[in-house]
């Protein structure tokens, strides 16, 4: 029998409590489960269904509903199927045990999400500073991180030596207004 992604989802559904599933396109399916089920589903995918690798761990911030959605994207080199296993975690102080023991590359993906969203991954052996240096504030990829305020707090426009520089937007508006006036006069 030819393997289909529907068959795969059915087998996973028989073994785990799946709260939702969807075939997104040929070869790509998503399924939702609880955080408690996550490791079981991922181990099943790797050990039983031979999903050899973890393509990435996606993280999207649904600030209006107060959760992060983590998507573990497992890929099989045998069937070329990708399964996104999705869990929802709280935006503040959430903690998800690492999956580094299942796929080694998860170490780097979790490290980035930890730094950019503030999700903790207990058990990750390299959960240390990654891109940022001595960062103390809100993780910058959270949607309520105020980028404009950050720039105002940390940088300032160079004033010295630019006293004579024109304000481009003001000058441009002046030119447009002058042109309009000129056209109006010509019309009269």
């Amino acid at each position: 029998m030819t393997e289909t992604i529907d068959n795969l989802l059915e087998r996973i559904g028989r073994n785990f409590q799946i709260t939702g599933q969807e075939v997104k396109k040929a070869g790509l399916a998503a399924l939702h489960c609880s955080q408690e089920q996550l490791h079981g589903v991922l181990i099943y995918l790797k050990e039983v269904e031979k999903f050899d690798t973890l393509t990435m761990i996606g993280c999207a911030d649904w600030i209006e509903d107060d959760y992060f959605e983590l998507s573990y994207m497992a890929y099989s080199f045998t069937t070329f199927f990708t399964v996104m296993v999705k869990i929802r975690v709280s935006r503040d102080g959430s903690s998800v045990p690492t999956v580094e023991g299942i796929w080694r590359q998860a170490r780097t993906f979790e490290r980035e999400i930890h730094e950019m969203f503030g999700v903790d991954f207990p058990g990750n052996t390299r959960l240390k500073e990654f891109f940022l240096e001595n960062w103390q504030g809100m993780p910058p990829m959270k949607r309520d991180f105020d980028t404009v305020q950050f720039v105002k707090d940390h940088y300032k426009l160079r004033e010295e030596g630019r006293e004579g520089a024109c304000n481009v937007s003001v000058e441009r508006k002046k030119r447009i207004d002058a042109k309009k006036l000129e056209l109006k006069k010509e019309g009269e």
Binding site: K25, T55, G58, S71, M73
Partner: peptide
Amino acid sequence: GDTLVKTESARGEYSYYMVGDGTDKLRR
């Protein structure tokens, strides 16, 4: 909705995870 797209670059697989939220901007 969301999707995962992949391209084979000269150095290997490039993957984009893209999330839409019904607005004119992508959520992620």
